[in-house]
């Protein structure tokens, strides 16, 4: 039983590593800053979750499990805050996003890029 659970944990770790690399490629590949933020968000949420859950499934002692859970929650609350602060600062300092072509044609909903 123990072997099964820890190999499931190993699978989670491997999946997390692969997804992390795909997210890193996305950060290099996407065209502008705002779209790169989305690719970085993949690394912040799913990769952190998969790797920390994978470590929990390796079944360390209970104190270590609780610390891993604390780190998981801390990351899930802190990362959106810092990404929001980064995006908001970039937007207020005048970095304009590259928008979809159809969106630029009918200038209705999108705010600052149309003015």
């Amino acid at each position: 039983m123990d072997v099964i659970i820890s190999s499931i944990g190993g699978l989670f770790l491997l999946l997390g590593g692969i997804i992390a690399i795909i997210g890193g490629i996305g950060v290099l590949r996407f065209p502008d800053f705002y779209t790169r933020m989305h690719a970085a968000g993949v690394g912040d949420t799913l990769v952190t979750g998969l790797i920390l859950v994978g470590l929990i499934l390796q079944m360390p002692e209970w104190l270590v499990v609780i610390k891993l859970i604390i780190i998981l929650f801390m990351t899930l609350f802190i990362n959106p805050t810092s990404s929001h602060a980064l995006t908001k600062t970039a937007f207020q300092n005048g970095l304009l996003p590259v928008l979809h072509k159809k969106e630029e044609a009918n200038k209705g909903d999108a705010g600052p890029s149309t003015r």
Binding site: I19, G26, F30, T35, V42, P97, K102, E103
Partner: peptide
């Protein structure tokens, strides 16, 4: 996450950034 990962592989033509 699965959607974003798919669009990372599909490349820049498949995304439609919107504000």
């Amino acid at each position: 996450n699965i959607t974003v990962l798919k669009h990372i592989w599909l490349g820049n033509e498949s995304i439609s950034p919107t504000l």
